[in-house]
Amino acid sequence: MGTAATSQQVRIEPTVDPAAAAFADKHGLWPDIELAVELLHDVFPELVAVRVSHVIDPESTDCEYLRVESRVPGGMEDMEEILDREDAFSAALRARMDAERRWFFVFTVIII
């Protein structure tokens, strides 16, 4: 879906896989995706991509979720700081999204 410029920073629009979009439609998750992307921008202003994909847990009988993968520039020396910021993101998400909604998502960061 690409990017759209704002006066403050470049907003990264998430790339949502078709299966993830169908899952989001089914469970009404679009506002939650929007909120998560907003919070990701707050915590990772340097973020270059967000991808949302649908995961069916191959080891569980009834577990599927959306994987929200953020790509953040950095190296080995930035890893601890990025983990701290992931914690900050999780705390911000807990404050804004209820537990049952959060269970539909797993967030992960790929350092590039």
Partner: peptide, 23 residues
């Protein structure tokens, strides 16, 4: 991360870089 590492053979190799392993 483990499910991707163990099951998703087509996944982008960036997810398994040395930095990601250290993470």
């Amino acid at each position: 991360d483990r499910l991707r590492a163990d099951y998703e053979m087509e996944a982008d190799p960036t997810a398994f870089s040395m930095v990601q392993v250290a993470r």
